[in-house]
Computed example of a mutant assay.
Amino acid sequence: MKDRLPHEKGFHVSWDQLHRDARALAWRIDGQGPNEGRWRAVVAITRGGMAPAMIVSRELDIRMVDTISVKSYNHQTQAAPRIIKTPDMEVVGDGTGVLIVDDLVDTGRTLEVVKALMPKAHVATVYAKPKGKPMVDTYITEVSQDTWIFFPWDMALQYVEPYRGA
Score class of each variant (00 low, 15 high):
Ala124Pro: 00
Gly48Ile: 01
Ile149Asp: 05
Val114Gly: 05
Ala116Tyr: 02
Leu117Gln: 12
Arg63Val: 06
Tyr139Leu: 07
Thr86Glu: 07
Ser69Lys: 11
Thr67Pro: 00
His122Glu: 14
Ala41Ser: 11
Pro52Glu: 09
Val105Ile: 10
Pro152Lys: 14
Lys133Tyr: 05
Gly132Asp: 05
Thr67Trp: 09
Ala121Glu: 01
Asn74Met: 09
Asp88Ala: 13
Lys129Val: 05
Arg109Ser: 12
Val92Ala: 05
Val143Leu: 13
Ala53Ile: 00
Gln76Glu: 14
Leu111Thr: 07
Ala80Leu: 15
Val143Asp: 05
Pro87Phe: 06
Ser72His: 13
Ser72Gly: 13
Tyr73Glu: 10
Lys85Cys: 05
Gly108Asn: 07
Met89Lys: 05
Ala121Lys: 00
Arg58Trp: 02
Thr46Ser: 09
Lys115Asp: 03
Met89Phe: 12
Pro130Gln: 08
Leu117Arg: 12
Val42Asp: 07
Pro152Thr: 13
Asp94Asn: 06
Ala44Ile: 01
Thr96Cys: 07
Met54Asn: 13
Ile55Phe: 02
Arg47Glu: 05
Met135Leu: 07
Met50Asn: 08
Leu99Pro: 00
Asn74His: 13
Asp154Ser: 12
Gly132Leu: 01
Asp146Asn: 07
Arg58Pro: 01
Lys120Thr: 12
Glu59Cys: 10
Ala44Gln: 04
His75Trp: 14
Met54Val: 06
Ala41Pro: 02
Gln78Arg: 15
Val105Met: 06
Ala51Cys: 04
Thr147Glu: 15
Arg63Phe: 10
Arg109Cys: 09
Gly108Ser: 08
Val114Gln: 03
Phe150Trp: 12
Met54Leu: 11
Arg63Met: 08
Asp66Ser: 08
Thr77Glu: 15
Met54His: 11
Arg109Ala: 14
Asp154Gly: 12
Ala79Phe: 10
Asp137Arg: 05
Val105Leu: 00
Asp106Val: 00
Ala51Ser: 08
Asp61Thr: 07
Lys120Gln: 13
Lys115Arg: 10
Asp146Arg: 06
Glu112Met: 06
Ile84Gln: 09
Ser72Ile: 02
Asn74Tyr: 10
Met64Ala: 14
Val91Gly: 09
Val56Lys: 04
Gly132Ser: 09
Glu59Thr: 00
Thr107Leu: 03
Gly95Arg: 02
Lys129Tyr: 05
Pro130Tyr: 04
Leu111Met: 14
Glu59Ser: 05
Tyr139Ile: 03
Leu60Phe: 11
Thr125Arg: 02
Val98Arg: 00
Ser57Thr: 00
Asp106Ile: 00
Ala128Lys: 00
Arg109Asp: 13
Val105Gln: 07
Asp61Gly: 04
Ala128Glu: 03
His122Gln: 08
Pro134Arg: 04
Val98Gln: 02
Val143Arg: 04
Tyr127Asp: 04
Lys133Thr: 14
Gly97Arg: 01
Val113Cys: 06
Ala41Leu: 04
